[in-house]
């Protein structure tokens, strides 16, 4: 049945900071990069989470403590059972990325879907051109997946942008779009993909536009409230598109007019 989650065993739990934990779960669900799951805490509820790895035998859940379900999820330890249904969504448009240069941008825990894409790129390196990666975090304490980032630094051009540098020498100070403005990346034959808070994605997109990347070369991985995850409950509708079924990754020129419509009417407060 579509609502029935299946049990999987937690293989490993790593506490990254007081807000974020990384759960490694044994599973053969093998999601495409950018797809997501509904994590079930029986008696508490469900929440949508993206896998942050691309591996046929495991899924990694980079989880930020945000609500009731994640609070319950955080209690689980190695060897416990977690119920999952999925994968859902279409994920990243891998076919369209072939032989292109990529700019990947992730903000905070928006890192998760982008990481699954980086994994995929590592496994199929010859399919892609230059890879430039930007990560945005609050401060050095909030840098996620430090070991992995260290590895990626050897393979790709990685820039970490921190709101507050606090003496960290390997990172740059400022929001991602500010850092990008100071040292503009090459945008020829390039596609940009990003995930993070919408306000961050918006300013980064504007900067990329200035650097010559048009909206049809930019993809957003989006977040909305989801209950069913297969386009029935209507919760994730942005005008006429379902984030769960049609996304969660959208080409920006497709989603832009819809977002702008809702945004402008959100600004007008009636009585």
């Amino acid at each position: 049945m579509v609502y029935h989650p299946q049990p999987y065993i937690i293989d490993h739990v790593k506490t990254i900071n007081k807000e974020v934990k990384l759960f490694r779960i044994k599973s053969d669900l093998n999601p495409k990069p950018g797809q997501f799951f509904e994590i079930s805490m029986p008696g508490i509820g469900e929440c949508p989470l993206a896998s942050c790895s691309h591996n046929p035998h495991q899924i990694d859940m980079l989880t930020r403590l945000a609500g009731n379900v994640t609070t319950a999820f955080f209690q689980l330890k190695k060897g416990d059972i977690v119920h999952i249904r999925g994968p859902y969504g279409k994920g990243f448009p891998l076919g369209k990325l072939k032989n292109k240069n990529l700019i990947l941008i992730a903000g905070g825990t928006g890192l998760a879907p982008i990481t699954s894409l980086i994994n995929y790129i590592e496994q199929n390196r010859s399919h892609f051109g230059n890879i430039i990666i930007y990560f945005g975090f609050r401060n050095p304490e909030y840098i996620l997946l430090k070991d992995k980032i260290k590895e990626w630094r050897k393979k790709f051009k990685v820039t970490i942008c921190l709101d507050k540098l606090e003496g960290d020498k390997q990172c740059k100070e400022g929001f991602v779009h500010e850092v990008m403005n100071k040292a503009p990346p090459d945008t020829a034959e390039t596609i940009a993909l990003m995930c993070g808070p919408e306000i961050m994605m918006k300013s980064v997109t504007q900067t990329l536009n200035k650097l010559g990347l048009t909206d049809d070369k930019i993809y957003w991985s989006m977040e909305r409230r989801m209950e069913c995850a297969f386009g029935n409950c209507g919760r994730c509708l942005i005008q006429d598109v379902y984030v769960c079924r049609d996304g969660p990754v959208f080409r920006y020129d497709h989603i832009k007019p819809r977002l702008e419509n809702e945004e402008t009417s959100n600004k007008i407060k009636t009585h």
Binding site: A66, R225, Q239, D240, E262, S265, N266, I268, K269, T270
Partner: peptide, 24 residues
């Protein structure tokens, strides 16, 4: 209806909710 964990409601104003009904 559109509120996510963390408190953000994506259709925050009455106007956007009302229009969502009619336009849907």
């Amino acid at each position: 209806f559109s509120r996510v964990a963390g408190g953000k409601a994506f259709r925050d104003s009455r106007l956007s909710r009302f229009k969502h009904f009619v336009y849907h």
